[in-house]
């Protein structure tokens, strides 16, 4: 199967990696309005990614491939953990706590990396196999930002 879903969603992962690195770069400048905008851009991009997965790709996959439900549950759980970190990042930006921001971004980065590794290695290849006819539809939706 051509890895249409895997390629498109992996590319979106990389987009989010770049945005996280951009927030870290902005932190060095100490301009809090710029930092705040960069953090919001990151959080919006990741929420868009989660929404595409949780509302569209995962339900479609679970429907045709019931054995994917267990790993999907794990992925949803990790999304919830990341949303918790988004909330903490928002609070740290609001009170302009640079050290806290750094710590949260570092933790978020590592959580994201191991999470993406599992999606890219397991779930997306499964989706490409199971959802051949609709792959282009999911790929277009994730790229639509």
């Amino acid at each position: 199967m051509p890895p249409i879903i895997a390629d498109a969603f992996t590319q979106d992962h990389h987009r989010c990696d770049h945005l996280l690195a951009a927030v870290e770069t902005r932190l060095g400048d100490s301009d809090w309005s710029v930092i705040s905008t960069a953090a919001e851009t990151l959080i919006d991009a990741m929420n868009h990614h989660f929404a595409q997965e949780e509302e569209s790709l995962f339900p479609a996959l679970a429907q045709v491939l019931p054995m994917a439900e267990q790993p999907i549950d794990v992925m949803r759980g990790e999304h919830a953990q990341m949303r918790q970190l988004f909330a903490e990042l928002g609070e740290a930006v609001a009170i302009r706590d640079q050290t806290a921001c750094q710590g949260i971004l570092e933790t978020l980065h590592f959580l994201v990396q191991q999470h993406n590794h599992k999606e890219e290695g397991v779930l997306y290849p499964l989706a490409d196999n199971a959802l051949t006819g609709r792959a282009a539809e999911f790929a277009t939706a994730i790229a639509d930002v």
């Binding site: 054995m67 994917a68 267990q70 790993p71 794990v74 992925m75 599992k118 290695g121 397991v122 290849p125 499964l126 196999n129």
Partner: peptide
């Protein structure tokens, strides 16, 4: 279908 990699909590 490869299933060995399915368990994500190993």
């Amino acid at each position: 279908m490869k299933t060995a990699g399915l368990s994500l909590d190993q």
